[in-house]
Design a protein around this nucleic acid. Structure first.
Length: 318
DNA sequence: AACCGTAACAACCGCCAGCTG
DNA sequence: ACAGCTGGCGGTTGTTACGGT
């Protein structure tokens, strides 16, 4: 710890009667213990008074932040799960930078953590695509590439854990899913539209382009603009994912629904529904061949193919 | 081993809304 | 109605850890 971070600031107390030294910078173990013990005995709230009574030379704000973001017993540590990441993406697309609101739907995660995740991971990916993280185009990219990828990770994890369970019960060797697996309700099957769904769009000069981007979105062109929109199926209420336990767990688990209320997941459900139940599409084969799940960009939001496909779309004026 | 760039995260700051006297 | 205080929120900054060269 550096002296600069342990600087002590002379400030007037709220009472104005005395001048006290307020500490800043990283909290010490001793301070953490004091704060934790005090809150355990007396509860939260009245942070300025709490700071004084607990004998902490910190502002009430600082105490509150330390408790909520670090010391509170139910704080969850470690990397965000794919489910949590997916939820963050969807909720952010709905609410924007309402970090505390988003955090309410992720038990054990703080608004600060979610905010940091967004800034370090999501905005980084947006920079790589050279588009604004808050733009509709980036949202489209997220829904078209990243969300399916996360869903696939979730499915993979679910599949592995079920195999692990079977393995532990029967002593079987654990293998990855077969590359041409088309198990009903398999997400990797559901995520790939057929070739006929690939995007087509017109250039300003009237010539036609087609994109190999496989997406739950379709390109809609009118006389002036070309937009990327969620594909609406003939029966919009049907989603093949609704029978999938992973999907249901993601969408309807307690983490998604406030007590006595819920939020709609229209955009996400729509995107999911648009993915269809197509089997053995070209892209499915590409995914099944391996570079989607266990590639070297495991922690990236999408792989290089995704990025180039999206850049093609962007650069051609969508 | 040293240096550098970057990711991750903790902490602070400023603003604002709600409450209270 | 107004002022002051408090807590909450989002934005930003600073530090540390880590990996690559």
């Amino acid at each position: 710890m550096r002296a600069s971070m342990l600087s002590v600031t002379k400030r007037m107390c709220n009472s104005g009667e005395e001048e006290s030294e307020l500490r800043r910078g990283p909290w010490t173990l001793e301070e953490d213990t004091l704060l934790t013990h005090y809150i355990t005995r007396h509860g939260e709230g009245r942070w300025n008074m709490l700071a004084k009574c607990a004998g902490l030379k910190r502002t009430g704000k600082s105490c509150r932040l330390r408790w909520l973001n670090y010391l509170k017993p139910d704080i969850k540590r470690g990397n965000l799960t794919p489910q949590e990441q997916l939820l963050i993406l969807e909720l952010h697309s709905k609410w924007g930078n309402r970090w505390s609101k988003i955090a309410q739907h992720l038990p054990g995660r703080t608004d600060n953590e979610i905010k940091n995740y967004w800034r370090t991971k999501v905005q980084k990916e947006a920079r790589q695509l050279n588009i604004e993280a808050n733009s509709k185009m980036f949202l489209d990219a997220v829904r078209s590439f990243w969300m399916p990828r996360l869903l696939q990770k979730m499915e993979q994890a679910s599949y592995s854990s079920s195999l692990t369970t079977l393995d532990s019960q029967a002593g079987h060797e654990v293998r990855p899913p077969p590359s041409n697996s088309t198990v009903p309700s398999s997400l990797s099957t559901l995520l790939c539209p057929p070739e006929s769904k690939l995007a087509h769009y017109s250039n300003p000069d009237g010539s036609e382009n087609s994109s190999s981007v496989a997406s739950p979105y379709v390109l809609s062109t009118n006389s002036n603009t070309t937009t990327l929109q969620p594909e609406i199926l003939e029966n919009p209420t049907y989603s093949p994912l609704h029978g999938d336990p992973v999907y249901n767990n993601l969408i309807w688990s307690d983490t998604c629904c406030e007590e006595g209320s819920s939020y709609d997941m229209d955009g996400f459900n729509q995107a999911s529904a648009g993915m269809g139940t197509y089997e053995n599409s070209p892209l499915e084969c590409q995914m099944a061949e391996g570079n989607w799940v266990f590639d070297s960009m495991e922690d990236s939001l999408w792989n290089m193919d995704d990025m180039w496909q999206f850049r093609d779309l962007r650069d051609t004026g969508i």
